[in-house]
Design a protein around this nucleic acid. Structure first.
Lengths: 208, 208
DNA sequence: CCATACAGTTAACAACTGTTCTCTGGAATT
DNA sequence: AATTCCAGAGAACAGTTGTTAACTGTATGG
């Protein structure tokens, strides 16, 4: 049991990543349920049968993509709904973070938005589970905010889900306006900002 | 130019509808981008080539399905965000309407949720356009509410989009819990109700 | 009553799909 | 140095796909 990777395993992970990358690229203009195994291997330049060395089926490839797209996002959550600064600053920071992420990983965002309600059950479930984890994390973050002192856990989770949904909706909106003129992108950011503001107002007056 | 339908056209529309129904059924466990033309005709019991008498491609079939799923929904919008009753009654009525609709047309709801961000561009655009129309209608309805006297059109449209998104999100949640035990369905309805309540609170305190 | 229009059929096309089995070259282990 | 392991290749399988062309029967309009 050596802790060195070895040429063998290194090469394997390399082609595995190549398969993931190629699939993500192909999925920009189709859904996972229509993605062919041969289509992916052809794009990578390996034999169709090599696919099975890495994934039992394209559905498992999809689950791996969910991990890649959302797994590394958990650290970002804490800063997104961080308690630092006043309400306006927090909203601006969140919008900025989402916009940057969409610009940096558009294919990831598209994949999640597309397959969240897509035709492949295991992938839907993987996304649902990850989003539920996000909601939990957002809840614990919200609980530390002095605004939420008299909130019960159920209401906090309700608000957390609302925020997570809003984040995804905003990310999807930003994705659509990625190639649009700057004016439209500003309008989109403005819309998202005001929606977040309305939610945060509702939050402040929840117990009236 | 007769106003009588004629045996011929009647039969044509009958098979056309059969194609739409079969497609909708098949789309419950896959996405439109993987729906085969032959698959649909086989389900209806008609030759593959007959498909072309009704739709140039499966994408056009999808656009027709958008029309069927959302086109008939516009009348419902007015009553959903109607101004009658107090806030709690309005929310209860909206949730009830959504729940009924999801139970009555689950395949329609699933199709819209799935293809809204799906892999077929013309269908995405058709859904986006219809939802934009919904938002416009919601806005004019909201404008008549005395709560919105000092709201500008831009903010009203922002709120309308938030409501439309929330409706879809709620419908999708209800769809997932359709076959779940009643306890979970009640929890889902409760969550949706509180989220709507938070938004409506934010709305009331928008200009503070 | 007859000519036309046309929804649906049949047959054939090349291209594609997922999956199995057998094989090979080189890294890993002993 | 000899042996095992295993990522990937290659070939073949039975089925599938979208699209074309030429057809048939029947409702429709003159």
């Amino acid at each position: 049991m050596s802790h060195t990777v070895g040429i063998r395993q290194a090469q394997k992970q390399k082609t595995r990543q190549a398969l993931l990358d190629a699939a993500l690229h192909l999925l920009e203009e189709q859904s996972l349920s229509s993605l062919g195994l041969r289509e992916v291997t052809r794009a990578v330049g390996v034999a169709p049968t090599a696919f099975y060395r890495h994934f039992p089926s394209t559905a498992d490839l999809g689950v791996a993509l969910v991990e890649e797209a959302l797994g590394s996002l958990h650290p970002m959550i804490r800063t997104t709904v961080s308690t630092a600064g006043d309400s306006r600053q927090r909203i601006d920071r969140a919008i900025e973070l989402i916009a940057r992420h969409v610009a940096a990983y558009p294919a990831h965002v598209r994949f999640i938005a597309r397959e969240r309600h897509g035709g492949v059950q295991p992938v839907r479930e993987a996304i649902r589970d990850q989003l539920a984890r996000f909601a939990e994390e957002v809840r614990t973050e919200l609980a530390e905010d002095p605004v939420s002192t008299d909130w019960n856990d159920d209401d906090l989770l309700m608000l957390a889900h609302l925020y997570v949904d809003q984040m995804l909706s905003t990310a999807s909106l930003f994705l659509e306006t990625l190639d649009a003129p700057e004016e439209e992108r500003i309008r989109a950011a403005d819309l998202a900002r005001r929606q977040l503001r309305l939610i945060s107002i509702g939050r402040r007056h929840w117990h009236d």
